[in-house]
Design a protein around this nucleic acid. Sequence first.
DNA 1: ATACTTGCAAATGATTTGCCAGTGT
DNA 2: ACACTGGCAAATCATTTGCAAGTAT
Lengths: 125, 125
Amino acid sequence: MARRAIVDYLFDAGAPVSAQQLASGLDRTPLDLASVYRNLETLEEHGVVRHFHAGHGPGRYVLVGGGEREYLACDRCGAIADVDRSELDGLREDVQARFGFEVGFTHFPMVGLCARCSAREGTDS
Amino acid sequence: MARRAIVDYLFDAGAPVSAQQLASGLDRTPLDLASVYRNLETLEEHGVVRHFHAGHGPGRYVLVGGGEREYLACDRCGAIADVDRSELDGLREDVQARFGFEVGFTHFPMVGLCARCSAREGTDS
DNA sequence: ATACTTGCAAATGATTTGCCAGTGT
DNA sequence: ACACTGGCAAATCATTTGCAAGTAT
């Protein structure tokens, strides 16, 4: 069963990966990309995995571990930082109070420039 | 020249529209979808138009009007609210101070639930 | 003539679906 | 037998690209 291999891979990765990376990374147990997607979907239904959209490019899948994490995706270098879900509570409340809008930053996290890229802004060296 | 028709359409719409809507809406001057994309790209280079990604689905294009606007996309009903760009300054600064991350909410705006859908949450009636 | 535009078809990238054969219980 | 997988090809959606014909300057 490939589901096991996928969970193991995600566990080892310890970071959000794309379906493609999964499909390529499972060297011991080659698995078709379509099957990877199907398994990820099943795992999501079981609440074991979740995914989010880090700007352009493919969706990122992660294991739903104990401590709830949220992500911040860098549009420039592709880095994905993770923060404690609770660290975003202030923002969420602010947006709610100000616009009556409920943001989670979960399925569609914030996309912007990480510290490193922010410093380099405009520097196309 | 179709560029004029596109700008007019966007002006009349006064709201973010997809390339597809543009292509379908230009009844007086039918224009191929590929040409719509090409023109939008040119207009973006000229700073006349910009686009952003409202969650799943196609990109949304808007005229870069005088007052800088940002958007909030509802994941449930697809509604797109707009707010004054400056109204997000607090959030941006907060994220910068807290995570050293620079968010614009411009190319990738916040996606969540609008007030209406937020109230209905869980109500699949 | 030379540059800019267009339509149309084909290509991309991410993801999904159909279908049929193989495995598990 | 019957439900659950997997591979593989084809389909879908948003967007891009190639190319040859058409229009503008």
